[in-house]
Simulated assay, not measured.
Amino acid sequence: MQRISDAERLIMEIIWKAGRPMTTLEIIQRLPQEKTWKQNTVVTFLSRLIEKGIIKATKKGKANLYEACVTEQEYLNFETKQFIKDVHKGSIFGFISALCDNGDITREDIEALMKRLKE
């Protein structure tokens, strides 16, 4: 799996939310109004997502149906692992220490983590 750009992520959020194969037109119709991407732009992003193994396309008549090959949770897990690897040299302890040092983790978070770790 490879990381996806912010634009590709926006398209994936549409596909994940739909939970079914979608055509290019359906994806374009669900884009936020401020995104005025042309069809060719969306097709380019879809092609990149296929190359990265995130989606697959199935031909149906003249249209392609695009569907996710990975769930949103699987992708989030991948991104989290990559972040810890890239920013914290793979150290989960370093990551959690940074959260503690910045005050970004609450006592409730710590208690929930302790409970989870004991499971």
Rank of each mutant, 00 (worst) to 15 (best):
residue 119 E to H: 06
residue 47 S to K: 09
residue 25 L to P: 02
residue 104 D to V: 00
residue 112 A to C: 01
residue 114 M to E: 09
residue 35 K to D: 10
residue 100 C to Q: 00
residue 113 L to Y: 10
residue 119 E to K: 05
residue 104 D to E: 08
residue 26 E to D: 15
residue 23 T to G: 03
residue 14 I to E: 12
residue 16 W to R: 00
residue 110 I to S: 14
residue 8 E to P: 04
residue 30 R to D: 15
residue 110 I to F: 14
residue 2 Q to K: 04
residue 12 M to V: 01
residue 17 K to R: 15
residue 111 E to Y: 07
residue 95 F to S: 01
residue 119 E to V: 06
residue 78 F to V: 03
residue 104 D to G: 02
residue 91 S to T: 07
residue 70 V to M: 02
residue 71 T to I: 10
residue 69 C to T: 07
residue 16 W to V: 00
residue 91 S to Y: 13
residue 86 D to C: 02
residue 5 S to F: 11
residue 79 E to M: 05
residue 10 L to S: 10
residue 50 I to D: 13
residue 16 W to A: 00
residue 11 I to Q: 13
residue 47 S to Q: 10
residue 5 S to E: 12
residue 81 K to I: 06
residue 98 A to R: 07
residue 111 E to M: 03
residue 30 R to S: 14
residue 17 K to D: 15
residue 106 T to Y: 09
residue 68 A to Y: 05
residue 81 K to L: 11
residue 30 R to K: 15
residue 40 N to G: 04
residue 16 W to Q: 00
residue 65 L to G: 07
residue 69 C to H: 00
residue 27 I to R: 15
residue 89 K to A: 09
residue 43 V to H: 00
residue 27 I to W: 15
residue 89 K to G: 05
residue 26 E to F: 03
residue 88 H to L: 02
residue 26 E to T: 07
residue 111 E to Q: 09
residue 111 E to L: 12
residue 97 S to I: 06
residue 76 L to H: 11
residue 51 E to S: 14
residue 37 W to L: 05
residue 19 G to L: 12
residue 105 I to K: 06
residue 77 N to M: 02
residue 105 I to R: 03
residue 12 M to P: 01
residue 88 H to Q: 02
residue 52 K to S: 14
residue 25 L to R: 15
residue 37 W to R: 03
residue 37 W to H: 04
residue 97 S to T: 08
residue 66 Y to E: 02
residue 71 T to W: 11
residue 54 I to K: 12
residue 71 T to N: 14
residue 114 M to S: 06
residue 46 L to K: 12
residue 62 K to F: 03
residue 19 G to Y: 13
residue 92 I to C: 04
residue 97 S to E: 11
residue 46 L to T: 13
residue 64 N to Q: 07
residue 25 L to T: 09
residue 8 E to C: 04
residue 41 T to P: 07
residue 48 R to H: 14
residue 9 R to K: 09
residue 32 P to V: 13
residue 59 K to L: 11
residue 117 L to P: 06
residue 13 E to G: 12
residue 23 T to M: 05
residue 26 E to P: 12
residue 97 S to P: 00
residue 43 V to S: 02
residue 88 H to C: 08
residue 118 K to L: 11
residue 44 T to R: 13
residue 7 A to H: 14
residue 5 S to G: 11
residue 73 Q to P: 00
residue 38 K to N: 13
residue 34 E to L: 09
residue 69 C to R: 05
residue 108 E to H: 11
residue 107 R to N: 13
residue 91 S to Q: 10
residue 51 E to P: 03
residue 40 N to K: 02
residue 53 G to S: 10
residue 105 I to V: 10
residue 2 Q to G: 01
residue 55 I to G: 05
residue 110 I to Q: 13
residue 31 L to C: 05
residue 104 D to I: 01
residue 46 L to A: 12
residue 91 S to H: 11
residue 23 T to E: 12
residue 108 E to C: 10
residue 68 A to I: 04
residue 45 F to Y: 13
residue 64 N to M: 07
residue 69 C to I: 03
residue 60 K to I: 01
residue 117 L to R: 11
residue 70 V to R: 01
residue 50 I to E: 15
residue 110 I to W: 15
